[in-house]
Nucleic acid binder design. Structure first.
Lengths: 118, 118
DNA sequence: CTGTATCCGATAAGATACTG
DNA sequence: CAGTATCTTATCGGATACAG
């Protein structure tokens, strides 16, 4: 449970405090996270439909990414408590939508301007 | 030297192939990388001046980040071979400059729109 | 001055099994 | 259906020592 004894953890906090960009990039770089965001934007609003859309993602990781996106208020989660089986729906928040737009731009940049090795 | 036996490595390659955005985000999320990019943009064009600017970075990591930025042609490296002691200068390429602009935007978004937990 | 080589602890992705 | 818990293996950041 202990974080790294010293500099490793300290530097992470230092950089996240220095600029919000670092924290955002750290979040966005988690594998599958942007894919989940885009999948919800495209209308897959259930756990199972996202999982089906992103064929290779595991339950484990999908649940974790949904939690993180919700935690940062990029998506919202509506649980219909009284239905059996349990039915949960995810939708993008307004900042989630804005982020998705910015990532589209960044994606176009990546595809057109960045020289990827090999 | 072996990569992960199976799915872990496979998924990384799959996602990077699926969209260049994933590879770019994976690069950008490496600790200190955007800080190094911004530091060079602000005029710190020597190994030692970047190191001084980013007080807590280690030689190890700085060298690695410079190599990666150069590898993706976001910065260029000019070595003045005949000087002793060795003198090397780094500058942003045109795509490095564009990336820096897009990151500025993303940073403003992060600071104004994203709700960070706690 | 501008790096490289080696080692170590912490974290991340994924496999598998299980739950309300 | 929508997750949680536990475990394994790979990779990352940083410390330290050294080199051209």
């Amino acid at each position: 449970m202990r974080k790294l004894s010293s500099t490793n953890y300290y530097n992470q906090v230092y950089l996240e405090d220095k600029c919000a960009l670092n924290e955002l990039l750290y979040l966005l770089s988690k594998r599958w996270l942007t894919e989940v965001l885009f999948s919800i934007e495209e209308g897959n609003n259930r756990f199972s439909s996202i999982k089906e859309d992103l064929k290779h993602i595991s339950d484990n990781i999908l649940a974790n990414r949904l939690k993180q996106l919700e935690h940062y208020q990029l998506i919202s989660r509506q649980e219909n408590v009284h239905e059996v089986p349990l039915r949960v729906e995810y939708t993008l928040t307004s900042s989630g939508t804005k982020l998705s737009d910015m990532l589209d731009q960044l994606c176009k940049f990546a595809e057109s301007e960045v020289v990827f090795p090999e």
